[in-house]
Amino acid sequence: MVSAKSLPPEFDRGVVTTVHQGDCYVSDDRDLTYSTVLGSCISACVRDRVANVGGMNHFLLAEQSGSARDRYGASARYGAFAMEQLINKVLTGGTGKKANLEIKVFGGGKINASLDDVGAKNIEFVREFLTAEGYALASEDLGGTFARRVLFKPHSGRAFVKRLESSENASIARRELVVARRGPAPKPAADDIELF
């Protein structure tokens, strides 16, 4: 858990909404921060710079189907859906102009040897998806052998990334392995809103 003392001033107060696997949230609330923890997963943070509307998604591409008609496989279609959903929600809530979007992506770590480097496939997918759609990345923190906690302020577009200790990597890796083998894991029962 990131302590309030270690955060930049713009992250040290307000309401935090946790973004779990499969979630996609968009807001223009000045005091809202989205938070997620990523291992092999990817989170995109998309913001309309003019309207100050932004959002975050969180997806895991667990396996490729090898289908000849879909070069990314069934799981990448899920990633494509997550990206399209987030971009469309930000466009709808904002100015509707693609040129006003600022995109940041995070995650894709190799934290579980059992998952055949899903993180690298996720990184390749998100980069190819954005290039094919004509978007440039404003910033990224991808790859490595560690998990991350990502905080994102949708109103200002500010992002904060903390690399997590290796003890936390094991817990995240176990959860991702469950998802990869059985499909989406149920969301935690705990509240998804935290106060700093």
Rank of each mutant, 00 (worst) to 15 (best):
T33Q: 12
G14Q: 08
E140A: 13
V2W: 10
R69M: 11
L115C: 10
G96E: 05
E133N: 13
L142F: 09
D117E: 14
R148K: 15
A147R: 02
E84I: 11
S35A: 09
F11A: 02
G183E: 08
K153Y: 05
A173Q: 00
K89Y: 11
Y72G: 05
A173Y: 00
R158G: 05
E10W: 07
E168S: 01
E133Y: 11
H58M: 04
N122K: 09
N88V: 08
A189L: 13
A180V: 01
C24Q: 02
A62G: 12
K121I: 11
F106C: 03
P154L: 09
A62Q: 02
F106S: 02
G14S: 08
N169L: 00
E140I: 04
F160Q: 04
V90H: 04
A136L: 15
A132F: 12
T95R: 01
V2Y: 11
M56V: 03
V118W: 10
P188T: 05
S75K: 08
G79E: 06
A113F: 10
G144T: 06
G66C: 06
T131V: 12
E102W: 00
H20W: 12
T36K: 01
I123Y: 06
V2R: 12
D117L: 09
L137F: 10
L60E: 01
V16L: 11
A4E: 15
G39N: 05
A120V: 08
K121F: 12
A190D: 09
M1F: 14
G54Y: 09
D48C: 06
K98G: 00
V16A: 06
R182Y: 05
